[in-house]
Design a protein around this nucleic acid. Structure first.
Length: 835
RNA sequence: GCGAGAGUGGCGGAAUUGGCAGACGCACCAGACUUAGGAUCUGGCGGGGAAACCCGUGGGGGUUCGAGUCCCUCCUUUCGCACCA
């Protein structure tokens, strides 16, 4: 029989379709252990690409494997269905975003089904439907009540291409995350924010517990949160500033070096700058220039490379520790959005301050004893090539009463001293900012807020949810939010006073949608609540989350935040959404990411048409370990297709081998096949359990099939009992089932098996049967391979050593030299050391 | 600049705990079957050498009986962060 993937896959596709319960998760009352495997939901852009296929093939193999191992598996899929591309399509093709999105969903869903993915479609979620996004609104109102959602005017990132605001997380190297060459502008706008910073400490601390997450992702999140321990210190202005605040608060992690502070430096945007500069026209001009230049640098994303520039204000501040007057400068290397926007400059012990001081001739005062390599204090501390000395494991000098204290002790004690004396306090700062979620776009969740002429900001009452997007809207990228122009929607009555009110016309960032969709999967039709706490208690945390590393910061930090908020609301019990995270590599071709402009895109549809879904999926698993990038090679698919064909032909050719008891005594040839079978089961099982290197699993199965072909004559001669042939066939099909489900189902049926291929049947290997009787031992002389011996697997070390030393080739290599010793590594080799 | 990963045949990759480098697949070569082959099957396939044998996992050094694997150092490359005080 020839392997005809199209025929097989069409046949089974129809059968799978006819059985909608096939991949349904059992309810939380199930006696089986639960397993929640989740792949990141796609944006319905139009069609699946190979990256999707790879992601979902990994998840599907795992889900099927866990079913076969007897778990109650939840394996859902949905659509991240709000977002700008739908609006762009509306402008271009004059089609409503909803229609465009829903038809894309329909198409991509059919592609997924054609690929044979085992999703429980009854759990499907599309975030653009009111039945879903009403709960975004519900959560927003709950957060508003708890003070976690608030409105403020602030400088925000604006992408001119998207015509909307971006969150900090959506700015990559100064450009928009969707438009990598479009610099982000700064605009002053009223925006809604979620208080992610309330959870900064926990989001950071809990990274420690996420042992099932890649270290890379945890590091990226740690850097993003940017926790920093230090202290605020107030420097009094030498000349009083009248009504204004007459002190400058700086943040420092090195309060121990404060005796070395020879300047206070303000960010160009610092509120005190204007006062300090006064009306000196020359100074004002220089500072204005500095402000403009810093903003330009920020927008071009060209930070770090910018040369330090500074302007002295001519004013002074007083170091509260030693009462010294230090000059106040304004410099472009101090940024307003971190700490207090002001620093104390310690040129001797900070790289940036050092560079600054050198350029502008500021005093450089050493207050920490520099140490050379090997921790030997350097007596000649005036030696300037040790500067800046930024080490913290040394002692303080030139620091008055603090001299000879260790840096670390100084950091604690001096901060306490400042606190006791009212000019400072210990503090922890974070780089993480609150999450700005307002978007000036149409295709998103309406923010359920009203602006009443009398009552001000009024939340939409819960009973009025959802606030549904109006249909008749004209979409353009100009003139602000399209919703603002739908007057019959915008104008409404205030639920408090009945007077005139306007709706909020901004919509929510689509990352809100994806922050909790995986909870909704457990009960997507639930009508009176976003989720059922008990059901969540059963399924969560997600056992395995699988997706691209590009979401390491964005989606994965928001999801963690949302989980913690829900926990504090009492509606979920888990602290973290996912116990384990796996980030698969990209699919590239010819060393570059697949893209239309490079013309190196491989379409899943074409591959399916040519080789079938099984071969397409199998290739994405075979070509590279899942965590590495996969370099697509068209000929490679050919190879796995050939392999499936060989497996198919072997099983069908021997499908009528009768079942029965396998004799304990087998011919050596039959025994070899039996051993190979059990070794293969072990290798594949181990890969699923630990490493997920499906490329080596597939290699192992290929080896088994190669051995079967090599044994065809032996089988024909009757030396292999029919019962063993059948056993091999059965297990071969079972091993293939999670990886190539269509052909596995077909062969299962061909074998006359009637039990479910999917449930409770993962094969077990017998270690005794997998064991080799005879093993080959390498014999080295001084580490060089000289011979090989075949010995019994249970031979003792002495026996092996004796055999090795008696070997002719070894003797020749020894050539009368003196044997120092012979090292025996059981089961591996003998190394004879001579001199 | 800082941090993390990667570097193995013509190519994708394997070597799971320091123990026979190159499994498996692609490409290529030879043969078989065939009217035919872009089907299938069999064999070969790191480099040098007639062979014995020698060399070989980015470069250099080290530890070890033994290193792709551990340590030091340098190079290349991918990704992340980038004045974070």
């Amino acid at each position: 029989m020839r392997y005809e993937p199209q025929r097989i896959e069409e046949k089974w596709f129809a059968r799978f379709e006819a059985d909608p319960k096939l991949y349904a998760a059992e309810p939380s009352t199930s006696k089986r252990k639960k397993y929640y495997v989740l792949e990141m939901l796609p944006y319905p852009s139009g069609a699946l690409h190979m990256g999707h296929v790879r992601n979902y093939s990994i998840g599907d193999a795992l889900a099927r494997h866990m079913w076969m191992r007897g778990y109650n598996v939840l394996h859902p899929m949905g659509w991240d269905a709000f977002g700008l591309p739908a609006e762009n399509a509306a402008i271009k093709a004059k089609v409503h975003p909803r229609q465009w999105t829903l038809s894309n969903i329909a198409h991509m869903k059919s592609q997924m089904k054609r690929l044979g993915y085992a999703y429980d479609w009854a759990k499907e979620v599309a975030t653009c439907l009111p039945e879903y996004y009403r709960w975004n609104q519900w959560f927003f109102l709950r957060m508003y009540e708890r003070g976690l959602a608030y409105r403020k005017k602030s400088r925000v990132n604006w992408c001119p291409e998207c015509a909307t605001v971006l969150a900090n997380e959506q700015v990559v190297g100064g450009c928009c995350w969707r438009h990598e060459t479009t610099p982000v502008e700064q605009r002053e706008l009223e925006q809604w924010f979620l208080r992610t910073t309330n959870y900064a400490e926990e989001l950071n601390a809990e990274l420690e517990k996420l042992q099932g997450w890649p270290e890379k992702v945890r590091t990226m999140q740690r850097n993003w949160i940017g926790r920093s321990e230090g202290a605020y210190v107030n420097f009094q202005l030498a000349a009083p500033a009248g009504k204004r605040d007459d002190q400058i608060s700086v943040f420092t992690t090195r309060i121990d070096t404060i005796y070395g502070a020879t300047a206070v430096v303000l960010a160009p945007g610092h509120p005190l700058v204007e006062h300090l500069v006064g009306d000196d026209p020359e100074l004002v001009g220089k500072v204005t220039e500095l402000v403009a230049q810093q903003r330009k640098a920020k927008e071009s994303g060209d930070l770090g490379a910018v040369e330090k520039r500074a302007v002295p204000t001519g004013k002074f501040a007083i170091n509260p520790f030693n009462r010294e007057k230090v000059p106040i400068w304004v410099a472009n290397y101090v940024v307003m959005d971190y700490g207090t926007g002001a620093i104390m400059s310690v040129p001797a012990h900070d790289e940036r301050d050092h560079e600054f001081a050198k350029k502008y001739g500021l005093e450089i005062r050493i207050v920490v004893l520099p140490r050379r390599m090997g921790d030997v204090p350097d007596a000649d501390s005036g030696d300037s090539d040790v500067l800046p000395y930024t080490g913290e494991d040394s002692l303080l000098i030139n620091s008055g009463e603090w001299n000879e204290m260790s840096c670390r002790e100084g950091q604690q004690k001096m901060a306490e001293f400042a606190e006791e004396n009212g000019f400072g306090k210990k503090a922890v700062t974070y780089r993480l900012k609150d999450w700005g979620i307002s978007r000036q776009r149409y295709w998103g969740t309406p923010i359920p807020m009203l602006y009443c002429e009398k009552c001000g900001i009024v939340p939409v009452p819960e009973k009025d949810l959802p606030v549904v997007l109006p249909d008749n809207v004209e979409i353009t990228l100009e003139g602000g939010s399209p919703l603002a122009r739908v007057s019959e929607w915008v104008n409404t009555k205030c639920p408090k006073c009945g007077g005139n009110a306007r709706r909020e016309t901004d919509t929510m960032d689509t990352f809100v949608d994806s922050s909790w969709y995986f909870y909704r999967y457990t009960d997507p039709k639930l009508a009176d609540r976003p989720l059922d706490t008990a059901t969540i208690g059963y399924w969560f945390p997600i056992d395995q989350y699988i997706g691209g590393v590009e979401h390491a910061i964005l989606h994965l930090i928001y999801s963690r935040f949302w989980t913690k908020v829900m926990r504090d609301m009492g509606i979920v019990k888990n602290d973290e959404p996912a116990a384990r995270l796996f980030t698969q590599g990209m699919v590239i071709k010819g060393g570059a990411k697949m893209s239309k402009s490079l013309g190196n895109v491989v379409s899943p549809d074409d591959m399916i048409a040519k080789y079938g879904a099984d071969a397409t999926r199998l290739y994405t698993l075979f070509a590279a370990p899942p965590d590495r990038d996969l370099d697509w090679q068209d000929m490679g698919v050919e190879g796995v297709s050939r392999f499936l064909s060989r497996a198919y032909r072997f099983v069908t050719r021997h499908a009528n081998a009768a079942a029965g008891a396998i004799p304990g005594q087998l011919s050596p040839e039959a025994r070899a096949l039996q051993r190979k079978l059990h070794q293969t089961i072990k290798r594949v099982s181990d890969d699923f359990a630990a490493r997920w290197h499906f490329n080596t699993s597939i290699s192992a199965i290929m080896e088994l099939v190669n051995d079967l072909y090599a044994a065809e004559e032996t089988i024909a001669s009757g030396k292999v009992p029919a019962a063993l042939v059948r056993e091999i066939n059965r297990n071969l099909v079972l091993l293939l089932a999670p990886l190539a489900p269509y052909v596995a189902h077909e062969l299962w049926e061909t074998l006359g098996e009637t039990s479910s291929l999917l449930r409770d049947n993962w094969p077990k290997y017998d270690p005794a049967l997998a064991k080799e009787d005879e093993i080959e031992i390498a014999v080295q002389v001084n580490g060089k391979l000289r011979s090989r011996l075949s010995v019994a697997a249970d031979a003792t070390e002495d026996q092996v050593r004796t055999r090795a030393l008696a070997d002719e080739r070894v003797k020749a290599a020894l050539d009368g030299k003196q044997i120092v010793k012979a090292i025996v590594v059981p089961g591996k080799l003998v190394n004879v050391v001579v001199k």
